[in-house]
Design a protein around this nucleic acid. Structure first.
Lengths: 196, 196
DNA sequence: GAATTATTTTAATTCAGATTAAAATTATTG
DNA sequence: CAATAATTTTAATCTGAATTAAAATAATTC
């Protein structure tokens, strides 16, 4: 049986695969990405991927779960570090963007959620919804504590999350641009919500 | 030969098809949408679509061209009607959203541009880029005429267009929500850019 | 270093959904 | 209303990328 070290190796490879897949999906589109493409990035042949995943659907599904996880991780960290609503929001945006442009990225755009099989689709949708709700709660908290201007949290949340989710559409790994993105984007998004 | 009236009929049917396709792609994802699905919406069989389009790729391509056209139309109208940069921006956002939720929608999300064939891909990318540039120009003009606060137009443009482009991800034809969207979203997006 | 397990490969197979062909229907024109 | 063109259908075909099977290699364990 596998020792914990071997499990770690397996998990490491699997994560490498998910990142490679996310990269391919973002750059070539879902239908434009064959398992061959993903395997090429990893220096493997396509059937090798089946050692880690049941099929292509599951690969996308796992990419999306990972995307959701990283988003949640960013928000959790922001929540634990932030002083008030606005601070939490700014931190969350920064951390999330850092994930996208940093060495844990890229993060897959959730373009093909509807074509997942029902259980997977529901799970991913649930993760998305929860994340959205949690973000709205941050806005709400900020409004209450006076750090964020009053606003329609539902719409504002959608607006900001849309900007975030769209980033992989135009950011393709340019380091310099990534730097700017991390440093400037959060404040651009938050600008409309400051109280001063 | 076809009279102009018949050409109109053909064009009308083709537009119906593009709208049906956009609806399917947005709701079911690209890979989750078969030509059968699109045909079903129209009350036709799949091979009938080939009367209007060479293949599925071209169908997506035309959806994207149409998306770009409608965006451009919204911006053109805003430019011709707006008094200053901010006014143009607000009008553009409203008009574009009206298209999405109104009877000329839905507008396809450009998720699969990378999997188009090279010529089509380049053309669509060009349209996208141009639209982005034109929107940035509006921001720039607004900054110059004092109606829009100074900002990084590139990033701000990306932020706002991201929010716009993501709308079809969460808006699925609810009329009441559509109303709110048209009325509230533009100001939410513009809020960070006002000078007062 | 032999045995066992983990990982990857090469070589088929498979299959859903795109596409084509030919025929049928519907609309239009003179 | 016959003739022509436009649109759609039914019935095959085709295809490429996903998937499976079996074998080979690499890593690990004892």
């Amino acid at each position: 049986m596998a020792t914990s070290a071997e499990e770690t190796r397996f998990e490491l490879q699997k994560t490498r695969m998910l990142r490679a897949a996310a990269q391919c999906f973002n750059q070539k589109g879902y239908s434009g990405t064959s398992l061959r493409d993903v395997a090429d990035v990893l220096g493997l042949t396509d059937p090798a991927l089946y050692y880690y995943v049941r099929n292509k659907q599951e690969l996308v599904y796992l990419c999306y779960v990972r995307a959701a996880d990283l988003g949640r991780e960013a928000l959790d960290r922001a929540l634990s570090e932030g002083r008030d609503g606005m601070d939490v929001m700014l931190r969350y945006l920064r951390y999330h963007i850092e994930m996208m442009v940093g060495d844990r990225g890229p993060i897959a755009i959730m373009s093909e959620v509807p074509s997942l099989k029902p259980e997977h689709r529901e799970e991913v949708l649930q993760l998305s919804r929860t994340h959205g709700k949690n973000f709205e709660a941050v806005l709400q908290a900020g409004i209450r504590d006076g750090s964020i201007a009053d606003c329609n949290v539902r719409m504002t949340g959608n607006a900001i999350m849309g900007s975030i989710n769209w980033i992989p559409k135009w950011y393709h790994g340019d380091a310099e641009q990534g730097e700017k993105l991390v440093n400037e984007f959060p404040e651009i998004l938050a600008r409309g919500l400051s109280v001063d």
